[in-house]
Design a protein around this nucleic acid. Structure first.
Lengths: 164, 164
DNA sequence: GCCAATTGCTTGAAGCCTAAAGAAATGCGA
DNA sequence: TCGCATTTCTTTAGGCTTCAAGCAATTGGC
């Protein structure tokens, strides 16, 4: 069913092995680093990675954000955030109140203690990350940033296409 | 407390912002793609990503492998694999037997049905991945492979260093 | 052969995560 | 104003995941 070099022979499966191998390598890198960071956070601060990530989102905004915002930024489900926030409020890291203008909305913020705790963790965390990437030259880092930006765009486009 | 350019001024925190941003971008890419693949696997084949990953490991070896092997390759905990395998044996995708030479060891293999099912899924999966990375040129793919290999090595080294 | 250390796996508790369904509040158009 | 779609969040069921503890089988040293 192969026709000629002009006509597309759709029946012939193309080779996509390189992309697959790239994806697996990307996944390996992330899993490896994530595991390392998770372990260090646990050993050093007795905190989980999702909690740390959530606090990192909140540290960027003084006035807090809604659960939906957090959910979008962290790319996790709404229900997930509900539980995560519940535990962090319980432990005194987060402050939660219902919006004055829209009673559906919950606004969460870091408490004073929560922010201090996060800053302490974040400082070390940044050094760990630098250590993990220490074999990469500044040029490598820039190039990787560029290619991952491209990857991100490509992935978003593919996801959007499917969502229609 | 800054001394001179020869003496290391350890009290002065270095800037590691680039590495941190790189890590966050890497994580974003992986989360994005993983979510997309998870969604498609669910919608198209009603299978979860961890199940698919486990089957992918087993598809590579005709004679099966031990739970420990799977655990190492997938970079997840032993206990995790136990549960995953249990469900896949239950659903008829996997075959499990105790090793003849070492009664601690469980060897798992894809069943005939399991392998057929996996191959069917894998074929589509590969096309999805190619689509997700379609904005990247072959050169981009090669370069990204190279940089991620370097990253992997660097991360492993850092992890090893900590484990001592 | 015997004992200690190691290896392979399972179990249990806790937490993370998703998808889907549901409750409450909002807003918009008729 | 009413009705209805939408948005925001919670709940539920099921599954994934880790860590730590524990059990059973094997191995290695003596």
């Amino acid at each position: 069913m192969i026709l000629d070099s002009e006509t597309k022979a759709v029946e012939l499966p193309e080779d996509h092995g390189d992309e697959l191998r790239l994806w697996l390598r990307l996944l390996t890198c992330t899993t490896l680093i994530e595991g390392e960071v998770r372990g260090r956070l646990r050993a050093r601060f007795d905190v989980t990675l999702p909690r740390f990530d959530l606090m990192a989102q909140l540290d960027k905004v003084p006035d807090g954000m809604t659960l939906s915002d957090v959910s979008k930024r962290m790319m996790v489900s709404n229900g997930n955030v509900t539980g995560l926030v519940e535990r962090l409020v319980e432990s005194g890291h987060l402050d939660r109140r219902t919006s004055d203008t829209d009673r559906r909305v919950q606004v969460i913020r870091l408490t004073k203690a929560g922010r201090a705790e996060f800053r302490r963790m974040a400082a070390e965390h940044q050094v760990w990350i630098a250590d993990i990437f220490s074999d990469l030259s500044p040029k490598d880092v820039r190039e990787l940033m560029r290619l991952l930006a491209k990857t991100k765009g490509s992935a978003r486009k593919a996801a959007q296409k499917r969502a229609l």
